[in-house]
Structures are given as structure tokens and as C-alpha cells.
């Protein structure tokens, strides 16, 4: 885990959800000049409903159209479309089965935590052991998902497919003319599919300043974690979904955390923090702004879930 103090040059700016947009002020405060490459693939078929976003970027933005490009690829390349569908189905099946394991393990963690007659140290050891089972499940699941992707990319060789190569070329060309990238939220799985297929990281995401929020921020990490404690059907445990772009490391990003997570359940939140440690669980609630330096370190003011399950800052968590 790498951490620095405030004041470092921001390479990546993570924002809270932009329902009440602060993007224009952020861009102005950073002194960032356009043109901006925008990625709104998470909005799916509404990808081009980006007039407001364009205005916030002073009218100097170019939408990379990744979602529509992905649809074009699937429409034109039947073999890839079939393989894409099969890959999604495999991942969905893996996810479903992995969740059964997560469900049982999380119930075990909860049941252990609820024991009242044991010595606290014994209880803590038992909780730690169950959490380790959880971490192992997460690790194995992510490895399985990576293997499915690797097989897909090895077999389909997207860069050799004309329609993919064409779109990749166009995307790289637009990115080469831009000074920064802006990633909006939306459907994180759709966004990840598009980001991976068009190889966005080497095309510019690896070097350009980035402003991202919600699903866009999550996609930048090396491990995307889904969470919604308010889901209508149990289990409502968080789950590792997939690898992200890996531009941000050692952090799990949690947009609208206070809305989507039972933050008052400190036992549950403590397990959440332990489960993904040493990565920091970063809270990106409305109004949040976290600037990450070129060294990839989070600033001390970053709001995180502490080891005890309470909201704190990275600086305080480090001192605790």
C-alpha cells in the first residue's frame, strides 16, 4: 500500500456521484485544459446523452463512443459476438456459484461475531479465520474470471480482427489528441467490457490525467467489487466481479457508500475492510473528491472504512 500526503500532483481525480455536478469546478480548480476524451460507455445506449458533460468540459470534449463501438463490433463480427456471449454466460455462472460460497462464509462470519460466551481473543481468531476463507474465495474467483478472459482474448485475438483493429485505431487517434480523460459512471460491467476490448489503458489511460466517478472510478482499479446492501433479494453481500484497468492499485472504490452499504453495521463493515485489505476501501459519497498522485498514492484525507468498520480517514487509519 502506498500513501502520500496532500499536495502531490493529481494524476487521477476521483469524485463522488455527479447527480449534482461538480466537474466544471474541479476542472477549473485543477487548471486542466482540453481537449478531453470522455467515456460514457456505462450509460449504454444513452452514451451520447452527454451534452451536459460536454458543457462542463467547456465544450472541448470528444466522446470515445466505446459502447456504440462495441455494439458495432458485435454486429459485424459474428464469431466474436458468439464468443462474447458465451464468455458472459460463463462469468455469470461463475459469479452465481462463487456467491453461494460467499453467502455461506459471510453467514458464518456473522454467526461467529454474534457469539457472546467466548473469550474476545478466541472470537477474534475465529472471525479472522472465516474472513481468510472469504479472501481465498475472492482470490480464486478473480483468478477464474481472469482465466475466462484470457482464453477469450487468446482465442479471438481481437487486435487481428479488422473491425476491432479499426475501432482501436480510431480510439487511439482521438486519445492522442486529448490532454485528459473523463470517465463517467453507469453499468460497470458494460463499461469494463468496452474499456478492455478497445485497449484503452495503453492507448492513453496509462499516461493522461483522469477524472472519474462512480462506475468510471471503479473501473480504474485492479479489482472491481460490486456492493448493494439494499438489494431486494438476499444475499446482499458484496462480491468481487472482475479485474479493472489496474490504473489504481490497492484500493476498492465505493461510490455512494453511505447509500448502498449498511455503514452503521460496524461488524459487517469491519469484515468488509478486512476482506479486501491491504487494499483501502475508499468512500466516494456525493461531494467527495480524492486526488491520487502520479505515484498512485492516496492522500491522508481520503475517507475509508477503518479496520473497526467505522468511517475514518486514511491518515487516521494509518495512525490507529
Amino acid at each position: 500500500m502506498s500513501e502520500v500526503d496532500e499536495g502531490a500532483v493529481p494524476r487521477i481525480t476521483l469524485l463522488g456521484p455527479q447527480r449534482r455536478p461538480s466537474l466544471d469546478k474541479v476542472v477549473q480548480a485543477m487548471g486542466l485544459a482540453g481537449p478531453f476524451a470522455t467515456i460514457t460507455a456505462g450509460w449504454q445506449e444513452r452514451e451520447f446523452d452527454d451534452a451536459e458533460l460536454h458543457t462542463h468540459l467547456r465544450g472541448d470534449s470528444h466522446n470515445l463512443s466505446l459502447w456504440h463501438r462495441l455494439q458495432d463490433v458485435l454486429a459485424q463480427d459474428a464469431d466474436l459476438a458468439v464468443a462474447h456471449r458465451i464468455r458472459r454466460d460463463w462469468i455469470a455462472q461463475l459469479q452465481e456459484l462463487y456467491l453461494i460460497g460467499v453467502d455461506h462464509t459471510m453467514r458464518a462470519v456473522r454467526q461467529i461475531r454474534e457469539q457472546t460466551e467466548n473469550h474476545p481473543q478466541v472470537l477474534a481468531m475465529a472471525v479472522a479465520d472465516a474472513e481468510e476463507v472469504l479472501r481465498d474465495l475472492d482470490r480464486r474467483h478473480l483468478a477464474r474470471v481472469h482465466a475466462v478472459h484470457a482464453e477469450f482474448y487468446e482465442r479471438l485475438v481481437p487486435h487481428e480482427r479488422p473491425v476491432v483493429a479499426h475501432h482501436r485505431g480510431e480510439v487511439a487517434e482521438v486519445l492522442s489528441r486529448c490532454n485528459a480523460v473523463v470517465l463517467a459512471g453507469g453499468h460497470v460491467a458494460e463499461l469494463l467490457d468496452a474499456l478492455h476490448l478497445f485497449n484503452i489503458a495503453p492507448a492513453g489511460l496509462d499516461r493522461l490525467p483522469i477524472i472519474a466517478w462512480s462506475a468510471g472510478a471503479m473501473a480504474l482499479t485492479e479489482r472491481v467489487v460490486l456492493f448493494n446492501d439494499n438489494a431486494s433479494r438476499e444475499p446482499t453481500w458484496s462480491e468481487v466481479y472482475d479485474g479493472g484497468m489496474g490504473v489504481l492499485r490497492d484500493m476498492v472504490l465505493l461510490p455512494s457508500a453511505h447509500y448502498r452499504l449498511r455503514m452503521q453495521d460496524h461488524g459487517r463493515m469491519s469484515t468488509f475492510a478486512h476482506r479486501f485489505a491491504p487494499a483501502r476501501c475508499v468512500l466516494l459519497d456525493p461531494g467527495a473528491k480524492v486526488q491520487v498522485g502520479y505515484d498512485g498514492r492516496l492522500p491522508a484525507y481520503t475517507p475509508v472504512i477503518g479496520s473497526d468498520g467505522r468511517t475514518t480517514t486514511l491518515g487516521e487509519a494509518r495512525d490507529a
Partner: peptide
Amino acid sequence: WIYPGPQKYYYE
């Protein structure tokens, strides 16, 4: 409940 929506995938 029967067919839960994809809320867990959406982060706006």
C-alpha cells in the same frame, strides 16, 4: 424478488 434488477452493476 423473482428476477432482481441489475442494481449491483449500476453506479451512477
